[in-house]
Design a binder for these strands. Structure first.
Lengths: 264, 264
DNA sequence: CGCTACATTGATGATTGTCAACAAGTGTGG
DNA sequence: CCACACTTGTTGACAATCATCAATGTAGCG
């Protein structure tokens, strides 16, 4: 069991590698078997966990809100439903991401969160979080940052959704995934997409056919290789150019909050 | 000269009329002169205020974060800038909206906030908010909800941006504005757009010409009347249908948080 | 093995972006 | 007061992107 890699990016964008990732639980693609450990930042001692199997929902819209979750292993999608019943994917949470913040406001969850694979999460009873947030400056700071981070993530996604060209959106999406895997200590150039083309399309505001076509197109051009869910990014400079970002300016949509120095 | 209304919607959706809005200061369109009062929820006594003139920025991206603001009068736009320099309007804050939350995470503001007219805001030093949040359960609850509300707003805007048809986006936008004015006690059917077509387009992920054309189109069809910035919504049922919402299911993108029972 | 869900690819057309011209409104300075 | 620049808004023509519809292929799973 090795420590999990959780980077922390300060305002400037510097990153430091501190911990390492837990072995993913359950049915995982072979290449993802990483040496296990404990994500120590969170009160190491027997913190309550919950397992979710492939396809199960961690919580659904309308469920009463009571706990936050920190993803320890596995992959999820987060679905928002508009008043008219339209459903959209709003994110693909994975290790170190915090889930459930959307329920704080009304006391009921606003999203459905569904597991792509067998996953495991820490369960943080919200009452505890509040208490902890009241009692310690660190706790207060962390709670605030969790929420604020989520707001920033929303802004970033809006920018993505109004990035006019589909090509650009797909490039941004791939580079963001790549960056998140890199931060987890996995390959930034080879990984498996856990979601369907439709999920990606929903997330990017595109039709699934457009996503499929663009992936094929990128492959023909030699920017990447794709075979079903397996993908290998080959030409980062070009992808960066397509995304409109540069390696330096690229800031991942979800930055982990918890780091090795944070103690609950 | 009518009192403006700030509703509060709990989890269930009940609303109550409680506070009143101050007279907008400075150069205001004549129809917006509203009877003066105080937005009492926030520590009525000499709370620090700040005036912003037309075109001035309340704060800009990169500015060190130190205070939150609650809009007391006037209209703003909020601009997010992506790493590559692309700028997008992420919201049009007005009375009772909270500004500055985006700076909590990094300690620096992530957005530019610009005033459309002469505006006035309450200044809430963030240190005070933190203290208040630590000391009182109510304060803690309110801080949390402010942040969580912002997250929900983000989700709603994402849904809007991935609503495929431009017609639908414009309809949603107009109905949202209408609803927000209604809640302020102003006319829900006649109001002035404070922003340019380009601002609207940026906010909706459309080109300004598309916005202009759709407004003209809606006018030709008799759904509304528009003349420059002045707009009158005529056929709500049709607009609701176009937006994909129904009057009941329509939830405004920004609900006010502060109400008469909240004391700082 | 067949079923089902997912992915790819093509043909086609609608929607929307782009470019351009022009009108209307606003503020400035002579 | 008028001329002027400048911003904003409208409208048209055209092209490009992307959604839609449809057919086919492929992988996983009972």
């Amino acid at each position: 069991m090795e420590p999990a890699v959780l980077d922390r990016h300060g305002g400037g964008g510097m990153s430091r590698t501190i911990a390492k990732v837990l072995r993913p639980v359950g049915i995982e693609p072979p290449q993802r078997t990483v040496a296990p450990s404990s994500v120590t930042p969170l009160k190491p001692a027997n913190r309550l966990r919950r397992r979710v199997r492939r396809g199960e929902t961690l919580f659904g819209a309308g469920d009463p809100f009571g706990t936050l979750f920190v993803v320890q292993g596995g992959h999820f999608k987060c679905l928002a439903t508009s008043p008219n019943g339209q459903v959209q994917v709003t994110g693909f949470p994975m290790v170190a991401d915090v889930l459930g913040l959307d329920g704080i406001d009304t006391g009921f969850h606003q999203c459905d969160v569904v597991a792509f694979d067998s996953a495991e999460v820490f369960v943080l009873p919200f009452a505890e979080c509040e208490q902890w947030s009241r009692d310690t400056a660190n706790g207060q700071r962390l709670m605030r940052r969790m929420l604020a981070r989520e707001i920033t993530r929303g802004h970033d996604h809006m920018l993505l959704l109004s990035a006019t060209r589909a090509e650009q959106r797909v490039a941004i999406f791939l580079l963001d995934l790549s960056e998140r895997y890199r931060r987890m200590g996995e390959s930034r150039s080879r990984f498996a997409l856990r979601m369907t083309r439709q999920d990606i399309g929903s997330y990017l505001g595109l039709q699934l056919e457009t996503v499929s076509r663009l992936l094929s197109h990128f492959q023909r051009e030699g920017f990447l290789q794709v075979q079903g869910r397996e993908i290998a990014l080959l030409d980062f400079p070009v992808l960066w150019r397509l995304s409109g970002h540069t390696p330096d300016t690229h800031r991942p949509m979800v930055e982990p909050i918890l780091d090795g120095r944070t103690r609950m």
